[in-house]
Design a protein around this nucleic acid. Structure first.
Lengths: 345, 345
DNA sequence: CGTCAACATTTACATGTGTAAAAAGGGAGG
DNA sequence: CCTCCCTTTTTACACATGTAAATGTTGACG
């Protein structure tokens, strides 16, 4: 059952009777070797246990075929969806993805960047931490390799390729919807862990003014640890509802996880948000978190097109790797959000 | 601002005025170099931009300091929690984690294993796909490096180190709780994507018999794609509730995501599961998915100790890497589940 | 001030594979 | 059947670093 194990191409070459460089070419692309020879190699390979040394192969190639991806947080289905889209797209392009999670710690993010440089990845896709990211790290990465930012975009880095959602459009869309169908909404902010938090807030304010309503933002004080969004949403509304406020208002949450907490707070105060209760409480979110349809009531929200974002980030990075549009203007791609009308608003 | 870039240790050695091997020792462990020399190197390093080549360093060391981790699925907070625990533990031990997701595809899992062998990782931790995993791949990995299975354990691989939850205890615990506090529960199974699915089912049946009740399992037919647990739970109960069945029963779901679907189905049929409604509908889950406390009603469940599982998987792997207990009996570690009493049951 | 030991540094070789250039092979046309 | 050209294979060197053994340095003690 267990085949004889061979550790180097050298040994393999004597075992099969082909020169080592021929094997090297075979492993890079079997078609670069005569059909006859390829068959002989494959037959030999079936008889022994051999895997080419990853490090030795990548060390010398001009291109490593590796893409580095950094995401800020694992325990968030939004990022896992995004990561999955990136991984699938990269796999289809024949690239290998090296994923690192910064666990919302800029030091870990910096270390991940270091690893990417050390590994000579062909390019990097980074979803930054927001304010907490060390932008020097991003700039260093960009100066060394094709580099694309994803999801959240620092205003201070206008010259970097970026792929994300058009929050002006998406937040504007749901704001407009809420205004059209009922009371103009209050905006329940999220802890400002990244730039999207503030972008959405600004988009809400702008759209409200356009529509002739006075914006109203709550929940900007950081009550809980970063990233504990549900807790945040629940706590803020617990205070409001407890004081008898907002119980018949429309509440637009900065993201779905905040909205999940908001719905929970409503339930605890005996309130049921809904689009059909004319004049009553409504709650809406942003992102289309995978569990939205299963909440009670199912959450009305705006979907971010994570598939498109992931795919585009990869394809843009591949363009940069190929050298297309390198020293050109950076490409900023923003995808529109789609309204997901469910029960809660 | 941008420092001169140096690509090899050789160049660096002339730039600083220290021999290359000394630099090599410095990068592996600064204390292996005279304090004086270390200071001189650090000063030099501050003036230039240099990162040691990952591949060249790892190629020659006897130990790569790498741990390979495979998880079956990204879009599931249970696995991300587990992965996070593993990453943190590994980081604390000074190891670098290479994460690969098999995306519930055995071919991708096999490719990931290949990558690990190719990279000479010091050891691998794998959360298998269940039935769909190619066990030959696991055996091959195990024959080549320290190997620990995590989360889900194939009955056909009794001789492999394993860390997971004692489902007999955990499922038994909540079964017993449900029986004690009300109607004996029906078991709402999940698609049998892994061994845990069947283990829990078996544990439920055994515990019910012990308590003198007749077990009753529903939802074993695969109505939806693998891993679409919420959809599955909702669909199965939609049929039952629609036929007027189970509306005042206790329902133990195979996991929390199934339970999320179940609660949703209940809501759509105007039912509110709860522990206080004596004699009424109750719904419970398994895992303690992070969102459980925010559902309406908050989900009663059994928590898997993901932190402990992740930590233990890493520490056991490190033991194996160090050579402790290598050819010994494999170590099977099962952590108990903890009851999380909330509102739904 | 000299000597010896302990330790830091350097020399010299090893690692497994990529790749340019040289050699060999194979097929077609004469 | 020979020759020439094109393709495949081989030779030879490169890559960036690890590491054992040899060499050098430092400092304490006599």
């Amino acid at each position: 059952m267990s085949k004889p194990r061979i550790n180097t191409m050298e040994e393999l070459s004597v075992a099969i009777g082909v020169s080592r460089p021929t094997l090297s070419r075979f492993f890079q692309d079997p078609s670069r070797v005569k059909k006859n020879t390829a068959a002989r190699i494959e037959a030999g390979l079936a008889r022994v246990e051999y895997v080419p040394n990853f490090f030795a192969t990548r060390m010398n190639r001009k291109s490593t075929g590796l893409i580095g991806v950094i995401i800020p947080y694992l325990n968030d289905l939004f990022f896992t969806k995004l990561l999955q889209a990136v991984e699938v797209a990269a796999m289809q392009a024949g690239m290998t993805v090296i994923t690192q999670c910064s666990h919302s710690d800029p030091a870990i993010e910096a270390r991940a960047a270091e690893t990417f440089m050390s590994m000579s990845v062909d390019g990097a896709i980074v979803a930054p931490l927001g304010d907490h990211s060390d932008q020097a790290v991003h700039l260093r990465l960009k100066s060394r390799m094709p580099f694309v930012l994803m999801d959240s975009r620092p205003k201070t880095m206008p010259n970097v390729d970026f792929v994300g959602t058009n929050h002006h459009q998406s937040t504007g869309l749901i704001t407009e919807y809420l205004c059209r169908m009922g009371e103009p909404p209050v905006f329940l902010a999220m802890p400002r862990v990244n730039f999207n938090a503030r972008e959405r807030e600004a988009a809400y304010i702008a759209r409200m003014r356009e529509l002739g309503f006075e914006p109203e933002v709550i929940g900007t004080e950081l009550l809980h640890e970063d990233w504990h969004f549900e807790e945040h949403g629940e706590a803020v509304l617990d205070i409001e509802f407890g004081g008898g406020r907002l119980t018949d208002r429309s509440i637009l949450c900065a993201n779905d996880r905040v909205a999940i907490g908001a719905i929970r707070a409503a339930a605890r105060h005996g309130l049921t948000p809904g689009r059909f209760g004319k004049g009553g409480l409504r709650i809406a979110g942003h992102d289309d978190y995978p569990l939205c349809p299963y909440l009670n009531p199912a959450l009305t929200t705006v979907a971010q097109n994570t598939d498109a974002i992931g795919k585009k980030a990869v394809s843009r990075l591949l363009d940069l790797i190929r050298g297309d549009g390198r020293d050109d203007t950076p490409e900023i791609t923003l995808f529109d959000g789609n309204l997901k009308l469910r029960e809660s608003a």
